[in-house]
Design a binder for these strands. Structure first.
Lengths: 344, 344
DNA sequence: TTTTATTACGCAAACGTTCCCAATTTACTT
DNA sequence: AAGTAAATTGGGAACGTTTGCGTAATAAAA
């Protein structure tokens, strides 16, 4: 089946004008008489003419579309970030194209290649938990493709970045648990090579230090697939409880990890386990958990907004930009039941 | 900043060949000598040549991309469906372009127009709860743009459709509640004009009828924004409890409505309210609710797969298709705590 | 040797636009 | 009336590809 849109040629033929005249009339050029302009505009309106964006892209050598690469959209943090991205992009005349890596480096590379070859004007990326080697991105970046990272940033690539203040988020969460009276606070987090993981760990350590609690590496467990596979989280928990000093509280990193830990803890709790818990999550369902879940919330929407503004700035800049900033947005600690040490 | 990809011309110039020869060599045409082919292929590989899809689209008058229009991606049903769509699309060489209506007719129209004018080859649509007038879609459909509906289908447009068996889903849920001993089963659902809403209502009624329970329209409440605004759900619940015969169980329609009802019920429960509850939901977090939530789960991924296969069939078909089927996939009732009448 | 196939390649048009550079018309001076 | 300036419009190239057709060069047949 085909779908034959009307072109500038159709208008030109019908009106006995040249395509150049029609083209100019359509964009309201001053060098076309009002009479002709009106004629063209009215006819175009009548037959519902729409410029062919493909032809335009070919001519202008830009597609007015930006690509988004995220681990997965079925994650409230990312879907909120995408909403932020869209809110800016559409207003600025850009179309967005979303793709998911599902935390796999390979899919991430394929998607990025695919997008790059589909002539996007720029890329908004949050790298997968599995990704360590960033050569594919580095290459594109060096060739001049505008890229902005958000959340899961790549420190070694010199461009704009937007992150939540994971250091402070983890710090606050840890302090909160300490203040509640927890002593052995564990941390189950994402891949150790992710920058956000490192920042969270630093915040966690600093909070312990500030409260004269020695840092015990055995209380930190990493999930290399960001919680996409339940087994890795299960193993992490199992490892924690193998320690002689069992944790009495856990801080979870990332939406996925956070909810999986919660589920596993909930199941274990039947055995009388009582653990303080707080997680990094942007889910809007955490209030419905039982106990309701204390969370560190990231400003996902705002991060999307900021990243998109930077990307468009990069795309539309006449001269190459070499000074790049990293925008850090505040996290929010939301205290609910799961992190409270209740009197029993 | 600009990003200058290498073109066929660059190869031709470098190798002292014409663009036609290079083009033919690249696609392995038989009328090019093996020597030349090898030369071209190797050089193309070396400089990492990628055909410009925009130029190709312009030439072939198709973009190899399909548009998705859903209410929102921050909804597990839709994100799972999108995963299903992607799984097929990418394998068949199609790129997908996702857009969200946020349950608003206006945004839906804008998105659809935008996509149509961006030369997509076909459209996968799940209409917003607010949408009643389908003229925009009807127009495009009549102009020959291939469209397949899934989940929120438009019965009046004659094309392929893919739905879950909402009738059976609602029937099963209702019967389950009846069997648990609930007497006054209410139903809070989406806009009355949505086809799925009607089907669910039918299933609900039939189940009541089969168990000699009279149908009471006062036990059915509609949310015109599909639960996007909390107030409408709150009002729905309030209305239900105004009845002289107060409901002792509720069936919620849609992911969003389901979780909002749950939250509101949970808050009310402090006052001693005890209500059987089951909802249509594809969230993977319902197990963590308290009580864990009984749900009717829809085969979201499979629906995405089926819809995409049909759309591609439509796009690639040589002759116009006039016989359209509607695929109905089974739902699954998952019984957890929230729908059980426990002995107290 | 000349004719006829066959092989391997180049030319140029086309897809829908924009835009530089004329060419034509109209209006204004002198 | 003729000349010039200003206002409109058209021609055609370009963006990166594909592809029908034409044409050299080579090989086979006469």
């Amino acid at each position: 089946m085909k779908f034959e849109p009307v072109t500038i040629k159709d208008i030109a033929a019908k009106l006995n004008l040249s395509t150049s005249t029609v083209s100019r009339a359509l964009r309201g050029s001053w060098e076309i008489s009002n009479k002709t302009k009106k004629l063209v505009l009215e006819y175009a309106e009548k037959i519902n003419y729409r410029p062919n964006p493909i032809a335009l892209s070919l001519k202008e050598r830009r597609s007015h579309s930006i690509g988004i690469v995220v681990p997965e959209i079925a994650n409230h943090f990312f879907s909120q970030a995408i909403n932020g991205i869209e809110s800016i992009a559409y207003n600025r005349g850009y179309h967005v194209s979303i793709s998911q890596s599902h935390e796999s480096t390979e899919r991430e590379m394929v998607n990025i290649q695919h997008m790059a070859s589909r002539s996007i004007d720029g890329l908004l990326v949050s790298i997968s938990a599995e990704t360590e080697n960033l050569k594919h991105l580095q290459d594109l970046h060096e060739k001049g493709l505008p890229i902005v990272f958000f959340d899961r940033i790549a420190p070694e690539i010199n461009t704009y970045k937007v992150v939540a203040d994971n250091y402070k988020g983890a710090y606050d969460a840890t302090v909160h648990l300490i203040n509640e009276g927890y002593k052995n606070i564990a941390h189950i987090t994402s891949s150790p090579h992710l920058f956000i993981t490192q920042k969270r760990l630093e915040g966690y350590k600093k909070a312990l230090e500030d409260h004269q609690i020695p840092y015990d590496p055995k209380l930190v467990e990493y999930c290399n697939y960001g919680g996409m596979v339940v087994d890795e989280v299960e193993l992490a928990i199992k490892n924690l409880f193998k320690n002689k000093k069992k944790p009495d509280a856990i801080i979870g990193g990332g939406d996925r990890i956070t909810s999986v830990i919660f589920l596993l803890l909930k199941n274990q709790k039947k055995g009388g386990l009582k653990i303080g818990y707080i997680g990094f999550s942007n889910s809007d369902l955490t209030d419905m958990f039982s106990p309701s879940l204390s969370v560190v919330r990231q400003p996902a929407f705002e991060m999307g907004v900021a990243a998109t503004e930077l990307l468009i700035k990069l795309i539309e800049s006449k001269r190459p930009i070499t000074e790049f900033e990293t925008i850090v947005l505040d996290t929010q600690l939301i205290e609910k039941e799961s992190s409270k040490k209740r009197i029993e």
